[in-house]
Structure formats: C-alpha cells, structure tokens
Design a protein around this nucleic acid. Sequence first.
RNA 1: GCCCCCGUAGCUCAGUGGAUAGAGCACAGGAUUCAUAAUCCUGGUGCCGCAGGUCCGAUUCCUGCCGGGGGCACCA
Length: 644
Amino acid sequence: MATMHTYITTPIFYVNAQPHLGHAFTTIVADTYCRYRRLCGDSVVFQTGTDEHGDKIVQAAQGAGVSPGEYVDRISAMFRATWPLLAIQPDNFIRTTDPVHIRTVQRILQQVYEQDDIYFSDYSGLYCKGCERFLTDKELVDGRCPDHLVAPEAITEQNYFFRMGKYQQWLIDHITGNPEFITPERYRNEVLSFLKEPLEDLCISRPTSRLTWGIPLPFDDRFVTYVWFDALINYLTGIGYPDQENFSRSWAAAEHIIAKDILKPHAIYWPTMLRSMGLAPYKKLHVHGYWNVGETKMSKSLGNVVRPAEMVAEYGTDTVRYFLLRDMSFGLDAAYSAEALRMRQNSDLANDLGNLFSRSLTMVAKFTASRVPSAGEPEEIDRQLRDAAVAMVAAYRREMDNFAFHRALAAVWEVISRANKYIVENAPWDLAKDPAKSARLDTVFYYLLETLRLIALTLEPVMPDTAAKMRHALGQAAAQDLTGQAAWGQLAPGTTITLPPPLFPRLDSGKPKTTSAPAQTGGKAQKNMTSTENPDDEGLISFDDFKKIDLRVAEVVAAEKIKKSDRLLKLTVKAPEERIIVAGIAEFYEPEAMVGKQVIIAANLKPTKLMGIASHGMVLAIKDQGSLFLSAVSAKVTPGSKVS
RNA sequence: GCCCCCGUAGCUCAGUGGAUAGAGCACAGGAUUCAUAAUCCUGGUGCCGCAGGUCCGAUUCCUGCCGGGGGCACCA
C-alpha cells in the first residue's frame, strides 16, 4: 500500500502579540496529529509560521520604538523559540516577510488580476482618522467611533477587489458535497448559513498613503495587498507553489487547523481564492474553540493571558500537552485552570498511568529478574485484557482520525484502569510466593507488559517524552509504526526491562506556585514584603518558601537609559516571553553592552512602577566593594529556563 | 433586531422517542501491600433549565419563556 501523505498547517500567527495558550494549543494539535500520522506510516509535512504585515504591526513597532522589520524579527523569533519547549517540531516555519513568500503572493495577484478576478473600484465608507481605518455601522456608538468619540467621515477610497461572489454557488456545492471539508459540523453549518446571503466581493488592497508595511500589488505600486491575499497564501508558499517537486502531492493532502475566530477567511475567502487561481480547495479544515481562563475570556486587557512557556516551566511539556488535548472537546470552548491541570496530573498521569507503570515494572524486576517472561495458556481474564488493549488501539485510531483527541485519550485511560484492576485481580505478589504458580505469574506479567507496550505506543504522539521513557524501560526500539506494532504479542520474551524513574510526580495540593501574568495590580513597591510571614528558625526558610520565587534566565533584547535617572536602565528581556524590567544598574553597565546578555531574574515579583515605567521582575546582581556584577549563567541556555 | 447552539449528579461532561438516566473527578466506608499514601471493591444524591403541546409513552420531537454562548463580513 502506498504511503499516505499529509500536509498539516497551523495559521501563521500575527506578531502583534506574544505566544499564548491559544497559539500553543493549535500548534500542539497540529504537532500531535502530525506525529500520529507518521506513526501510522504516512509521510507528513507540518508547517507553522508568523504573519507580519499590516498596520497593527506598524503601530506595535512604533510603541516599542523600533522599526517594523526589527519588531517582527523579534516577535517571530519568540514564536519559533516557544515551540521546542512544547516538543513541537514543525518542518517549515514560514514568515510573510520571506522574499519567496512575497514573490509568490505577487505572482498569484498578477495571475488573478490578469484573468479579471480582481478589479479596481470605489470603496465608500465611514473613515475614522484616529483609527486610520473604516468603521462598520455596528461598530459605531451613537454614530461615533467608540475609541475616539468623534463621528467618522464619509469618504470614498479607491481599492482593488476580488470577485469572491462569483464563486459563491460553487463553494456552497463543494461544502454540501463534501461533509468532511469543514469539521466539526457546527462550523460547517455556520458557514453554510452565512452563505445563504449573497457574498460580496472582497477588498484586498490598501493605498500606500495609509499603509506601506505590506506587499505591493504587482500591477499598481500605489497599493499594497491587505491581509488575506498575503496571509492565506502562506499555505502554498511553504510547499513550493507552483512548480516545486512535491507541491501537488502536498497540496492535495492539505489539512488546516484553526481556531474559530478565523473561520470565515479559511472557509470562504480561501477556497474561492484557490478556485480563482485554478487550484483545488484544501482537503480539510479543522476548527477548534477557545481556551477560557476559568470563567472568563483570556485577554490582554484582563491581564490573564496564559503563557505556554510558564505552563511548561511549572508542569512540564508532556503534562501540558496531555492536559490541553484531554480537557478540551475539540470544537468546543474549554476552561483552563491550574486546578484542573493539577487534577489531571495527579489522577490521570501520576496515579493511573505513572503508578501503573511503576508498580508493574517493579514487580517484574523483583519476581522475574527483569526479564519479559513467556506467556502460557491464557485464561479468560487474560483474554479480556488482551481484547481490551487491541480494541483500544482501534478506538484510539478512529478518534484520532476524527480529531477527537479527548476521546482517543479516554479510550487509552480505560485500558490503563483495566490494567490496574488486572493486577489486583491476579495479585502477582501472591503468585510469586508459590513456586507451583510461576507459569501463571509469567503469563500475568506478559499480558501486563504487552498492554503497557501498546499504551506507550498510543501515547507517542501526545506525550513523546513519556512514551520514549516507557519504550526504553520495556526494552523497545523507537516506535514508528502503529500498524505493524499494534498487533498483540510482539514483546519478545527474554527482553530485559529497566526500572525507570517515576513518569510523573504527584503534585501536592495547595496553591499552585504559578506566576501567571501580573499586570492588573498597578501597585506600589511593597516595602515590607515579608512582614506578615513568620521568619522563625533564625531566618531559615523552607524549601516550599524557596520554590515561591520563580527564578529564570532572561536574555536582554533591548536596553535603554531612563531619562532623568542615574541608575535605572529599561531592559526588554526574553524569559521566554517578552517583558520589561527596570534595573538599577546604569552606573555600571552601558545599555549597548547589555543586549544579548543572559541574566537571572526573579520573574514573579509583583510589578511595580519605577520612574513611570512598569517593571515586571528583577534582575539579580551582586554588589561587591562598590562595584556591581550581573548574575550570569555559565553557558548559553534557552531564555526562560528555570533556575533552581 | 434576525439566525444558530447550549442548559443532565457538588464539578466536567456522555446519552437515547420508551423500561430502575450514565462516566470521570470529588466525597464516605471497606479490601490490599506490588506501587508515586498509589490501587481495587461498595455506596448515595439528579423535578435531565421552566411552562405548555404531540404521543400509549419525552430528558430525547414541537412551541413559548428564562439563563449562558456564538454568528450577522472584510475590526487578522
């Protein structure tokens, strides 16, 4: 059978903000699905990247006091640096500022223009000078711009338009005829209901008088293209459109993963664009919901943005991946909370899986000298375990194929639970006491170990680290094949097993030591920060107290003197998210000398304002005989690494 | 305003025109000692949002109401 091919993408993320939980989730889903397909023997290309044009970027760059180019380089690098923390391994990381992408976009624009699917026309609307953009009627409050409180001006601007309406009926037919095109079904229905109204043409340009940070239209340099003809085309650029060797093969296998906020561009604009340029639509669009933080939306202004790097630092990569995939029904919104995550860690990972693995291997080490025994004639109870394990793999594959990751994992945990039961029912510690029962003991262990092998195999895409630990402990080579290796009975008798360290620690109950995003308490510097504590034991603190301080390595990406201050420097550091720290080191360090340095910071200090600048954390330094020395690390490490 | 989805055990959710409505977590009691004080067994609770209607029979279908969420386009 020829190997299947899959081309899986995340959206390219807009670099006006730093990576957050939502970005991480989409990308973890993509990575997991990608690993899963590879495990099934398919070849896969996995692409993610960053979207870097537009006026929001220009504004953000201005706010940061750098050029748009410098700004996007910095934020894009942060996205790229975040993915390895989550064991995400994309094959391509594309940027819309890549020269090859710019050429591709222009080439496609030219083509679509020449075949008359792009035309020049007037656009009349209500323009707010403060916002520098057109507002829609429903954005207005009492006829005024809600941000600037002035009535927008009715103006007419000339722009280029894409004949989207021309492809409306074709799109309806395509979606209707291909139930798998957009899933889950609710989003497919949403799109179809939207398509019941006439589809208007899409404005795809901005005059350079308003925006220059974009790709110039090849047929009119007074304009740049705006958003979608730039961003969506990344999916083609990355696989070598139009004539690179594997383009057609990959494009025919394209599956996009998105969050529901960009459903319309992906479900409507994009297929019609593809149709116009003479390409088949992508194969599938997988749409997921939002992660709320507790009861509320995650938003910058609420200051509750969850940073993936902080989650990983606190709980570990595999726990984060497992939690996110297990706790969200793909397609629906879900709630993130430290409590929910800790519960999964303790009950699913530590108690059920970790303890099962640990107790099983310990017994094998003790009772059969760390060798995989040969199974004798199975009894009913053994056959039941075997059947359950084999059925699990089938159910798992079915659910993974449908992007129902939570269900796939639930199926695995059913067998984990069954295996725990199997141990109690067979009481190997009793069998071991009676030499006459050694054959029975061997059979029990064989069935148990073989079940564990299959469990490890299914966990490979979700928790690659953990699966590898399990595999090594069971004396198995790298898993590559969910087809061949999923059959029962492949564990070779005589194989040596090794005792692994516990797979997952149990987390003590009590308050998570998490830092989370600070922000909302614009507060004052707390002078008596420990006044309510009880420093007995002659100033000794417990380990738990120590753990409260979130020490990390931060890399300085920018530094400037603060006016009217002799001692303060404003540092922009990566830890790994970007943050501003004001440090009292200006007497000893020049700003230029700071850039690129790695220092240790206390990352969870309450933010405070120094000379009017909010400082999020503190750089550790050493005072010695009137001099000051920055803390340092002895080798270059990943920014954001924990110090402990 | 128009349209769509949701409202089931303390929590998160599954479920079907029909029989005593389920799972996990949490909680209580017991068993066990191989294991990360882990595991296994047993147990309770539900006006299945409210009010009508269709039907022999509705949590499941229809209507209205209440509560929550989303969409109604170029604000990524």
